[in-house]
Design a protein around this nucleic acid. Structure first.
Lengths: 108, 108
DNA sequence: TATTTATGAAACCTAATAGTTTCATATTGA
DNA sequence: TCAATATGAAACTATTAGGTTTCATAAATA
């Protein structure tokens, strides 16, 4: 799968978008993420795996726990793609793109 | 299905994103869109239906043809959602959001 | 060390996706 | 009117997705 496809695919599911929003409040273990949803832990874990494939989160092993952290830079492909519609909105989108690129340059 | 979900779902498929990009160059009939892809016309038509459900295109009947037009305002739910990550990027994203809202206010 | 805890992973089920082929219908133009 | 054209729509197929249950493993703790 191509890179932006992994990103868009990851964002296509409402549970995964909700997980990302939760992670804005801080990193969580798999179990902690799972507590917030009405589904089993393995199901949540699969969602986290897809988010990791899309580079939207990072996972760090810490003892027996796995710490899931938001990786906002992973949203860049979406911004990039939206930027192809610049002409329809003026150039604020490309300003945004530049800003994101600048701020995420040395983070992975 | 909730509104933003229809949008994200529509954008999840690479063919549909490619269709949107093509439509930035001007409106096309279903047949014309289909010419650009290595799949049957009914398949393309299904993609167009999903894009229309996501309010990313408008379809206008013109005689026996259907004119498909890009509707950039349909991308607003994505911008809105991205804006919830403002804190990670400073407030350029919300500036963008405001700009989009202003420019698309009277277009649907 | 024995037990609990946090996760990994496999096997399975169902529904939704993305395609196809086939046939029907509604305009357009000769 | 008749044929060509542009699309609509149904029926079918294969794959992917999202979920489950069950069992294994590794780390922390009593």
């Amino acid at each position: 799968m191509t890179d932006p496809q992994r990103t868009f695919r990851a964002l296509a599911d409402p549970t995964r978008r909700a997980i990302l929003n939760r992670l804005t409040r801080g990193p969580l273990t798999i179990g902690e993420v799972a507590e917030g949803f009405d589904m089993t832990r393995p199901a949540v874990k699969k969602h986290l795996a897809i988010l990791a494939e899309g580079a939207l989160i990072t996972v760090e092993a810490q003892g027996r726990a796995r710490i899931n952290r938001l990786r906002p830079a992973g949203l860049a492909p979406v911004i990039d793609w939206l930027a192809t519609f610049d002409a329809f909105w003026d150039d604020r989108l490309s300003d945004l793109k530049t800003a994101i690129e600048k701020e995420t340059r040395n983070d992975d």
